[in-house]
Design a protein around this nucleic acid. Structure first.
Length: 284
DNA sequence: AATTGCGTCAACCGCGCTCAC
DNA sequence: TGTGAGCGCGGTTGACGCAAT
């Protein structure tokens, strides 16, 4: 025997809620508390399905709901939680006070999912997908020379950093870049929601490479003259750079992004030639 | 000014789980 | 133990507003 419908469809109002209906529901729940949704509409005098009442309360009328845009911190938290929990929106919502599962789900589907796809990251597995990448995005995937990335790599909102084993500045431009310099003239690279991982901060603090603003500088390589070949075979991509010039970032922008105290959360990076052959292994 | 395309998000739908009887 | 009510969850839809043409 199938489950009967929760309410007779021709006897209930559907569609957007009016202010009057909202007020009736709020007043009723203030007096009686939430719950008993099936009988609530009749008791409150609403021509709505109980399910609709519960949804309206849970996703919109509840007093503890935080409205407005998601902060970069919330966005990154959602991505990280999703990489562990998958589409468990209600579980994810527990970690984000004031946000509803529906709101997070919508934000994921309309913003984050598309963003990850643009970055060449599979929004389901959170693994890199080279078949999703355009050329510039592929160029964002590189590591130290001939060194495998520690996959599953940090896939989002990461940044230039310090080599995890020797503390030297990294030439690593991890996943998280949404754009690389246009091949040819431009020499900037944008990173959304730039944030330093705790481990990198700790290592960075051991260095003395600070700019005048007290912001950390990070060695990087880049590519106003970058014209690599992209042989793709098997499980690796090799990027070959044309020259072997090592330099530190001259701009303080990267320092701004790295510094967690007193520096702007700027997110642009200047690129300089670094040299050496770089490879990304263990992918695909 | 009108039309079209796209992004956003509130609301709906169906399924599955839990628990009381 | 079986059944059904109650509820929560995740997927999907569609109305609306804005930007581009």
């Amino acid at each position: 025997m199938g489950k009967p419908p929760c309410c007779e469809k021709d006897e209930v109002k559907r569609g957007p809620w009016s202010t009057e209906e909202d007020n009736i529901l709020i007043d009723y729940i203030k007096k009686n508390g939430p719950g008993r949704w099936r009988t609530l509409p009749k008791n409150a005098g609403l021509k709505r399905c109980g399910k609709s009442c519960r949804l309206r309360w849970a996703n919109y009328l509840r007093p503890d709901i935080k409205r407005g845009r998601f902060s970069p911190e919330e966005e990154e938290a959602i991505v990280q939680l999703h990489s562990v929990l998958g589409n468990k929106w209600s579980t994810i919502a527990v970690q984000l006070p004031g946000r509803t599962d529906n709101e997070i789900k919508n934000f994921w589907n309309t913003h984050i999912k598309k963003k990850l796809l643009r970055m060449g990251i599979d929004p389901v597995t959170h693994a890199p997908r080279f078949d999703l990448l355009d050329l510039q995005s592929i160029l964002a995937l590189y590591s130290y020379s001939h060194q495998s990335l520690p996959y599953p790599a940090p896939l989002y909102g990461t940044n230039m950093g310090i080599h995890p084993s020797n503390g030297n500045f990294s030439n690593e431009c991890r996943l998280g870049a949404t754009s690389l310099p246009n091949l040819g003239n431009t020499s900037t690279c944008s990173f959304p929601n730039f944030s330093q991982r705790a481990t990198d901060n700790a290592q960075a603090n051991n260095t003395s490479r600070m700019n005048n603003n007290g912001c950390k500088k990070v060695q990087n390589y880049g590519s106003s003259r970058f014209s690599p070949s992209l042989p793709m075979s098997g499980s690796s991509i090799a990027l070959t750079l044309p020259s072997a010039t090592t330099t530190y970032i001259g701009s303080s922008n990267i320092g701004d992004a790295e510094n967690t105290e007193g520096c702007r959360n700027h997110s642009s990076v200047s690129y300089y030639d670094y040299g050496n052959g770089l490879s990304v292994n263990g992918l695909m």
